[in-house]
């Protein structure tokens, strides 16, 4: 099988995970205009919770649910306790706040779960599939990764575009004041937005943990690549986040494969700068012609 094909497959699965991370960041950005730098650390924490459950004899799928539901809850707590009080503070303060949370969680995790590097079990085999007598670099777990990210995205799309709740959430994010006048409980909508975003982040965590090993800072890189993907796509576009995340996956895979893995991040930087020089607000940003 050609090297290019292998790298592409690898880029697709990695990209799906970066896309999930990027989507989580974009959802929070759209809801509250905050870049949640703690998103990766939160996902790390929920992955640890899942591993903790597995260690205590809980079956994998239940642990998977533990990760997702603890993501929901953690997102709500963070929004309510930490982000809400600084709603109207300057944006930089909120940046520092999420950085503080990141450090705190990365220190808390080893205190609660032990400091040693752990491996995290995959849901399915990570051995490449066989087609006839040739093996491809695409494992059942890769398929699961792609499938679950896709499923979550479709569910979110339906939620936001087809339901009244989604309509309320979008309205609350676009214009909280007008939404309040329409009887929308904006606070709840924003909390829910953070919750759902953290769920998506938590999904990224359990999906990438098997290939990265689990330690307190294991999600930092995923956060950076997800953020780069989100910026690449244009921070206020969900489609952009997914495309940007996938692009990052492919680009990093090609750079790593052809030029050496220690140039991956340099490649990311070059791509990002190149795109931003042409489109300073990302690929999918909509330029406003009229005053909104």
């Amino acid at each position: 099988m050609s090297r290019f094909f292998v790298l592409s497959l690898n880029g697709l699965t990695q990209g799906a995970i970066y896309a999930a991370m990027a989507l989580a960041l974009v959802m929070i950005w759209r809801a509250t205009q905050v870049i949640n730098f703690a998103q990766g650390a939160m996902a790390m924490f929920t992955t640890y919770l899942a591993l903790f459950a597995i260690d205590h004899g809980v079956p994998y799928w239940l642990a998977f649910l533990v990760a997702l539901s603890s993501g929901l809850i953690l997102g709500a707590i963070v929004e309510r306790v930490i982000v809400r009080p600084v709603e109207s503070a300057p944006p930089l303060n909120v940046v520092i706040l999420t950085l503080g949370l990141l450090l705190f969680l990365e220190a808390l995790a080893p205190m609660l779960f032990g400091g040693q590097i752990r491996s995290f079990p995959p849901a399915f085999s990570i051995v490449g599939l066989h087609f006839g007598n040739s093996q491809v670099a695409f494992s059942p777990f890769d398929a699961f990764t792609l499938g679950s990210v896709l499923a979550v995205m479709v569910l979110l799309l339906v939620l936001f575009q087809k339901t009244d709740l989604g309509l309320r959430m979008r309205a609350a994010a676009f214009n909280p004041d007008v939404s309040r006048l329409l009887g929308i409980r904006v606070g709840r909508m924003l909390t829910l937005g953070w919750s759902l975003a953290s769920l998506v982040g938590a999904l990224a965590g359990v999906l990438i943990a098997p290939s990265l090993l689990l330690y307190p800072t294991f999600m930092d890189q995923v956060l950076v690549f997800g953020f780069t993907g989100a910026v690449l796509g244009g921070l206020d576009s969900a489609v952009g986040a997914v495309v940007g995340g996938l692009l990052m996956g492919f680009a990093l895979s090609y750079v790593g494969g052809y030029l050496g893995s220690d140039l991956e991040t340099v490649g990311a930087l070059v791509i990002l700068i190149a795109v931003l020089m042409v489109r300073p607000r990302g690929l999918f940003s909509r330029h406003r012609l009229r005053q909104a």
Partner: peptide
Amino acid sequence: ARLGIAHVPQGQGVLAELTVDENLRLGGL
């Protein structure tokens, strides 16, 4: 608002990112 008070704000009260239909639906959600 939920007590039945509707306020048409001065100037721009529409949600520009949403469709006309969605804006109207929001009124009575």
